[in-house]
């Protein structure tokens, strides 16, 4: 190690000091609470070891919400990736007018989530929502977007996609800008079809960006809350009850903070494992972009 690197730890100080002071404490506190039977109302807490975890892992509700979360998470990340990638490619092809489009298409992403949820509710509400009202005008009987167990999942996935596709698009578009054009030209000269160019030249070069954006989205989609809460409240029944909605019910509705914290830790472990697997898989599939 070179001499000048020695003082490098000072650079960590502001950030990690702040994290330790502000974030580590609440985080450890939350993890600590997960070992207690702690009902916020009574203020008393009893140490029950892994009791909350055992409780949660043996109840059907957790597994049900886990399944729902996974369906919604993968559904929306898939939609976001496919649409976002298509948009990025389209923008890349367009050149001049791309800038205008990229600004307009990015707009949904900067809307405050609470507000975005409200906007989408005005679209999807049955009868008087914009979509229904329009379809009904033309005498088309629309499905029950938020009230039917299957459609509610679809609506929630589309809602998430509406907000986050722009992010995926932007990252991939930026990555395309950094693409080595000589590779593309070489492919063209070799007479490769567009599909082959995409598959064998563009995608491999984009792997780091793809991993980045999919990881980010998967991490966040598991915490996905505002939109579902406003649109369906987890309903109908439990059709759109994700782990986060369940955590909210436990922690903020029933004030069972210990159990809610345990659920948080479980979420974290599941997401971490999932991400690891996916990253490994993606890396392997393309023999790891540049690393």
């Amino acid at each position: 190690m070179v001499r000048w690197q020695r003082g490098l730890w000072l650079f960590f100080l502001p950030s990690f000091g702040l994290l330790a002071l502000v974030l580590l404490w609440p985080l450890s506190y939350a993890v600590y609470l997960s070992f207690f039977d702690y009902y916020l109302g009574s203020g008393e807490r009893t140490f029950i070891g892994l009791g909350n975890y055992v409780d949660l892992l043996t109840e059907a509700r957790l597994w049900n919400s886990m399944r729902t979360t996974i369906i919604i998470a993968f559904g929306s990340v898939a939609v976001e990736f496919l649409v976002g990638f298509a948009l990025a490619l389209a923008l890349y092809r367009l050149h001049g007018s791309a800038k205008v489009f990229s600004v307009l298409l990015f707009l949904p992403h900067i809307v405050t989530p609470v507000v975005a949820a409200l906007f989408l509710k005005w679209m999807l509400a049955s009868n008087w929502g914009f979509v229904d009202a329009t379809l009904l005008t033309f005498n088309i009987e629309p499905p029950d977007w938020l009230g039917d167990p299957v459609w509610a999942k679809v609506s929630v996935i589309l809602a998430d996609a509406w907000v986050f596709t722009p992010l995926v698009m932007m990252v991939l578009y930026a990555a395309l800008q950094g693409l080595d054009t000589s590779l593309l030209e070489a492919a063209q000269i070799d007479g490769a079809s567009s599909w082959n160019t995409l598959r064998h030249v563009i995608v491999p070069a984009l792997i780091p960006a793809i991993i980045f954006v999919i990881s980010i989205r998967l991490m966040d989609v598991f915490r996905f809350f505002d939109l579902i809460y406003v649109l369906t409240g987890g309903g109908p029944g439990t059709a759109t009850e994700t782990i986060t909605i369940y955590t909210y019910q436990l922690g903020f509705r029933m004030l069972e903070v210990g159990k809610a914290s345990a659920l948080g830790v479980i979420t974290l472990i599941v997401v971490a494992m999932l991400l690891l697997t996916i990253n490994r898989g993606l890396n392997k599939a393309y023999r790891g972009g540049d690393r």
């Binding site: 974030l23 609440p26 985080l27 939350a30 915490r223 986060t244 809610a260 914290s261 830790v265 971490a272």
Partner: peptide
């Protein structure tokens, strides 16, 4: 750092408030 990011934020609300 990732791990910290993955923890549901709503569970940090109560500790933050206590702090």
């Amino acid at each position: 750092l990732f791990t910290i990011r993955m923890f549901p934020h709503m569970l940090l609300a109560i500790p933050f408030f206590v702090m």
